[in-house]
Nucleic acid binder design. Structure first.
Lengths: 205, 205, 205, 205
DNA sequence: AAGTAAACGAGACGGTACGTCGTGTCTTCCG
DNA sequence: CGGAAGACACGACGTACCGTCTCGTTTACTT
């Protein structure tokens, strides 16, 4: 007999004691689908439950609220930032940046992001954790990439890696949220090259 | 003859659309206040109406929905990006960037932004207009600043001004939304200096 | 110089100082029209005002509320109970009863009656007065008719005239309100003849 | 395992549709109460909900609108027209008529009737059904009474039973609605005796 | 004829109730 | 005995009218 109420879900995948693993899959899939077709605002827990042939309680048993559910539904579709060592710093950085850009280009992400941000804005609990985890994951992998470039001497040692990465993500986020645009491949390239030439440090002089 | 039974002041200034303006001011002020104290999510039209001693219909008569109201309540508190010619490109850019950073540091902005973004995400109508206007205003003034720097030769002619500015705003937005942080003065400086050294153009080589 | 605020309107027709007599006519006519086409519930003061090309205040200046307005709009179309002495008690009674039946058969009366009753139910003020006046008028004329029959000896002297008349009106009201029906000519005749044969007095024993 | 947070009693009787019935009873009772204390016009669904400690939706789930709710709240308090065979036609008719009179004398009926009639006036749906049912029920039982009198020979065979009954109800309705009066016992007796002597048929001559 | 005061059309205003919807918790009942 | 089904309390939504009010303007009396 398992502890019924798992207050803090440790890992997105374990799913507590959900009897029907199949149901879980269905819920997430329906969520994802509705996200794309209806958008975040019109997606309701009740709707997901109905479309998944599931009781609302079943959903609430696993996810505490809408953003948590959406977040997990999104996780599966997130592209992974590649970490392979290509020997070429610029190529690696481009790959990382392009992956990020691709993420902001996903229909479901664009649909979910605004609502997700709003609904988790003041949440200090699991919501923040989840969001951080999702972002943190990409960021840490991208960080590896930049640090390798530093090791190679392609970026100065005092580069503010976090600032660079937040800058990359920031432009994309900004354009995505406010204009519904994506960065073009050329823009991404420009971003990376700017970083390479003058990687956010004070000028030598 | 005699003042019939005018509860509100009669003399006033011009006797024009007094009643309107009186109420309008009160509504916006209450909205702003509640934004700070309660946050966007807990701010309701009904609540604003009650606190402003106004009928809900009066609000709906002027603003079609919550984000429109909040947006207008916010406009008044937005700091203006300075456009004065200081003769010093770096100083001007710092001023612009710091103004931007200050904006993201306002309590009411931080409270309103997530919800505002979410609620105007799919709006194609006035909502988009408003948002664009608000952002566009700052951006165009900042653009003046950067272009002056280009004219002075402090920035290369092929600088992608929009990308630079979106980058600046992007980092701030990103950190604001996801971490509730603000850019430190040092970070802002770093941002500006990076732009000055290698303003987002491809390297010559 | 007339008394400005006529709180109690003494007679439905005098209309205080309504500048534009034409407007008054238009208001009542529009009210009557809307009563027929929309029914009492959907008739709003605002609607009447708009359709009559008149400000709401103009209506409220003359009539204190909806039922008062409707009542007056109705008065004009009410058929008068005949009081002429025909020499024949049965003929006179039939005429009176049929006039009553005709009244309940008017489209506007059927439309207005239920709402009118409801809205003036608890009114102790002018509303009750008005209603009583309207009903009282018909009733007093019908009373004349019955009393003449008593004088002639066609009805016993101890006939409870009021009970008889209320009985007549009652059936019609009952059928009108609950079934939307009218008394057929035959039913009216039966009603009258019953009264003639045994006019609501105790049997002689 | 502790009682989680059940504010309402848990043990109850059978555990069947307790929650439903519990709430239903409370709603109807509150409605009835408010009807008496406030009257029909001031009774609001929201008010009933609040006083019954129930959400508005719960009421709307069961009753489509105010009159439907009031109607049902009223049903419980309606006195039944007796149908017992007393062997005495006059006694039976008096019983029936007095029951009817008593009904129109109920505080809640007098309070609800005008509004109820108005709000169900144009209703062709369930409203009409309900009203008919409520009235029809009394009427059919009264009809039994009169028909038994006919069988006994106390009333002529060609008596228009429906007209007689509508006449009875009509007077009461008329006096109730327009004058807030009730028929005195003497009046009821007079009504019955009139019917017995000359039961609404054409005179033989 | 000019001046004054009122009545007017228009419609904004503070309120109140409406009926609907979504949330997150709960209970019931079925497989 | 666990889950679907959905009822439940709550609370916000946006709409509709009410009856009062405030605008300018138009009209009709006064002088």
């Amino acid at each position: 007999m398992g502890t019924k109420r798992t207050l803090t879900r440790v890992d997105g995948a374990s799913g507590a004691t959900m009897r029907d693993l199949e149901a879980r899959r269905r819920i997430l899939s329906v969520t994802h689908q509705m996200l794309v077709t209806q958008g975040y605002a019109k997606l309701t827990i009740g709707g997901v439950a109905a479309n998944a042939g599931v009781g609302k309680a079943t959903i609430y048993r696993t996810w505490p609220n809408k953003p948590a559910l959406v977040l997990e539904a999104l996780r599966n579709t997130f592209p992974e930032v590649p970490t392979a060592d290509l020997g070429d710093s610029r190529a690696e950085m481009l790959a990382a940046a392009n992956t990020l850009a691709a993420l902001f280009n996903l229909r479901e992400v664009r649909a979910a992001l605004p609502g997700l941000i709003a609904d988790t804005a003041e949440g200090e609990g699991s919501e923040h954790d989840l969001r951080d985890r999702l972002i943190g994951e990409r960021k840490s992998r991208s960080t590896q990439c930049l640090e390798r470039a530093i090791e190679r001497g392609d970026l100065p040692a005092d580069t503010d890696v976090s600032l660079v990465l937040d800058s990359w993500a920031g432009v994309m986020l900004f354009r995505c949220l406010f204009f519904g645009e994506t960065l073009s491949a050329a823009d991404v390239e420009r971003l990376v090259d700017t970083t390479l030439v003058s990687p956010h440090r004070l000028p030598a002089a």
